[in-house]
Amino acid sequence: MFLDRFWANTINGLSYGSIYALVALGYTLVYGVLQLINFAHSEIFVIGVFGVYFTFLALGFQPGQTPNVPLAGIIANLVLAGAVGMILAGVAAVILERVAYRPLRKRNAPRLAFLITAIGASFVIQQVFRITRGSNPEGTIRLLPPEPLFRIFGAPVTNLQVIIILAALALFVVADTFVNRTRLGRGVRAVAQDPATATLMGVNRERVIMITFLLGGLLAGAAALFYLMTIPQGAVFNGGFLLGIKAFAAAVLGGIGNLRGALLGGLILGIAENYGQSLFGGDWRDVVAFVLLVGVLMFRPTGILGESLGKARV
């Protein structure tokens, strides 16, 4: 049974893993620069999810209806919704940093204060969605139904999976190139490795922090689009909770602070939980993911590729 579904699970895992990876990048970027686990990042993702969902509504798509629009139109609408989700999540992340974290930084608050603030911010955003939109998921809007495009070793690969995996990889390459090849990206790395010296090189640390949150938010917004394409009933106030924890686990698994680690961790986690589900049943899906995390950390405490935008080379 497991072997029969091996390739299907692998492809499905890569597709889910791409979503984890995009969210994990946000955790890892912020951790790299501030050594802060931004627990509110999962809610930044949810803001992206609602941004995408409301764009669908605004474009005239209704829950439960199959859209009667040609493929090119569907793609254009998806891109538009994704862009809105990215911008909203990106701006929300920057505002979160301004409102929640910067005041603490100005006061040299201890690290625990940041952590508690992050958890608090996470609750606040979650509850705002619960109060304004209720506890039930929004109605299902599916723009692009999954259809098998081709087969790999007999396993069908759907249009959604192809789009998600390729788009996520493309976004990763953009983020990686930004951090490693551009002037501003070098500033981000410099702040991650040694903030005081980075300042002495003329790097504006506050701007670097803002850009880091913005980039993490943009990627979470893109992940939100792919998430809603895969799970169209997923727009709900607490939809970021488990996904956020898994993405965080993925970041730790790959080596937190390390961009390539976040990608690798996300993909491995996605694949592993699909294998686990296939081997032990659906109830064990999440268990397998976290047992894997614990197992890896026992042997490699800094994750698969090692920690930090600094110490290990990104």
Partner: peptide, 12 residues
Amino acid sequence: QVPEGRGIFPGM
């Protein structure tokens, strides 16, 4: 400023 302890970026 060349800081005390040099401040070389270790990963660069």
